[in-house]
Amino acid sequence: MTSVPDNMPNDKQVSIGKRLSRMAQSNWRAIIVFIPYVWLLLFFLLPFFIVAKISLAELQISSPPFSDMIEWTDSGIMTIRLVFDNYLYIISDNLYFDTYVNSLKISVTSTILCLLFGYPIAYGIVRSGPTVKPLLLFAIILPFWTSFLLRVYAWMGLLSDQGTINNLLIRLGIIDDPIRMLYTEFAVYVGIVYTYMPFMILPLYANMEKLDISLNEAAADLGSRPTNTFFKVTLPLTIPGIIAGSLLVFIPATGEYVIPDLLGGGNVQMIGRVLYNEFARNTDWPVAASVAIVLLFLLVLPIIVFQYYQGKASERS
């Protein structure tokens, strides 16, 4: 073979038809990206800017109940009004501050509870035999497919004054008068741990399942007892799972509305509930919007951390 036949296409020789089809090809790719991109820009990103805008407006008795950011004076001069009063109001008002703190307290505590109970459950599933394992996993996922609302409702029946738990305790003679459990902070903890536990278990399971059992064997072989192996090898290697699971519980729990409303009644103040009430009952949109923006800022860091780990996990796989 002395020379390569010159039939390799180069830019100048490509026919117009080929060029057109190549353009069409790059265009359908563009279309595939374009449709969901525009959808998300319009219905996910844009709304946040509108909320931010409203949070900087004033309450007005009108529809919608807030002032315009941009006003035109009689002489045709545009003025932009940014009102930070709402934020000042939230910060200065003890009710809001305390509610934020209480929300964070409840969500952090629930996350820790989910981790304490979820970790051994996830580890137990990983360590189960090949026939039991899929069944257990299935049992963890199954509640996802039933109604969230009804899972919370189930606890109303258990925790109420004449509920199953009180009935049982009274019948066993342990107590004489029912213990108040429904409409307390305790009920909110139970509700959050109950409904969000799978979000903790599943990422932990996914993380643990990938661990090589021979690492544990290697540690034992090098003289490490099981407990020491757990703290020196297993626990450090499951930190990504712990972070992912904790954020999946912490973030939605902080903004939770249904559980504090149904199980906490009026006695447990969480920010999601305050926000909803501000919006729906008081129709004070600017303050509601500010409450939402502050909540978002509280959660932005955890969300970014979550996305970072999510990205790293998908790169690895």
Binding site: D212, S214, L215, E217, A218, A219, D221, L222, V233
Partner: peptide, 10 residues
């Protein structure tokens, strides 16, 4: 002590 096929390095 054992040297593992996968090496099992931490």
């Amino acid at each position: 002590n054992m040297m593992f096929q996968s090496y099992a390095l931490f």
